[in-house]
Design a protein around this nucleic acid. Sequence first.
DNA 1: GTCTATAAGGCGATAGAC
DNA 2: GTCTATCGCCTTATAGAC
Lengths: 189, 189
Amino acid sequence: MKLDRKEEIILKAAQLFKEKGYNAVSMRDLAQELGIKAASLYNHIQSKQEILEIIIMQVARDFTMHIHEVSPKPISAIQKLEEIIKMHIDLTIKKTDFLACMNNDWMHLGKEKKEIYIEMRADYEEKFREILQGGIKANEIRNSDIEIMLFSILSTLRTFYLWYAKNKNINPNILKKDLTKTLLQGVVV
Amino acid sequence: MKLDRKEEIILKAAQLFKEKGYNAVSMRDLAQELGIKAASLYNHIQSKQEILEIIIMQVARDFTMHIHEVSPKPISAIQKLEEIIKMHIDLTIKKTDFLACMNNDWMHLGKEKKEIYIEMRADYEEKFREILQGGIKANEIRNSDIEIMLFSILSTLRTFYLWYAKNKNINPNILKKDLTKTLLQGVVV
DNA sequence: GTCTATAAGGCGATAGAC
DNA sequence: GTCTATCGCCTTATAGAC
């Protein structure tokens, strides 16, 4: 699996953005990490912002695609939530840096892409909300404040890359089981 | 309640840092928001970094102080968790901008303060972990992966200012009840 | 495809007048 | 306490040689 130069640049950029944040990484920093000069980057990418756009839009599309796949399935709300949690963990493992980047630096997108991102995120949350509502109707999920349940689950899933960074050796299947249990059933006996 | 100039600068800085991130806010931006020139800021503060340090260290101390207060109380683990959740909500309401700043920009602290911050955070997590462990021993809390339970609760509490920004009119007491219920009991019926 | 050189402007911070 | 003027450095990005 050979990476072309552009992919290499984007992967390294995502790694650096995750560690220091978009604005704290200069094109000189990025170039140095790749063993070239800053000017040479511009043979492969148009601008620093383009790198950020590619990173964020790619992973935003992944999430949007997956929830639209899970949402209409003829399964219970609980089973849908289990699939979504599994999906978040898989993406956290496969695309840690991209995910961190999306979470922390989306506000540094250009005007146009930022609007698209915000819309995709709202769409994702709406699909999630519909699943919870379906669960309440079917008496699978507690009839409590839906916005709080939504935020509680989603905030943990969105920042889970922070936990994973310090626990990389865990078995993904055990992880999925334990996180699902905690998010759905809470911590009380 | 009259603010002196330094407090005014720090409050406005926290607000701007929350919106754009530390590195994306220049001293010229900050000064303009206050109706003065950038050079004038330096009569009140030593450097841009000093502003960040004051913001983050203040709220980090608040959290540390409170958990050391709750931890030794002769109450059940569940009651301790309830008090901690209440405390997070109170600080989220009272110091939204400071909290956002701490969460997003702590890595831009100078070397020395960054080390102190990381240590305070580790101490906070350790106290939290001890409370969960006590709860497991007393059979109040499920004997599941403690690190996952810790992260699940803490990640929601730490980013709760994002939710609160869009739901400012909610009654704090109802909020505390609902969030506590969701974090402790989960979402399943 | 990478290099050197450089443009054009923003950055944090200081000096000194008022 | 705020101002104007400025320093020295860093920034993204381009031009043109090799």
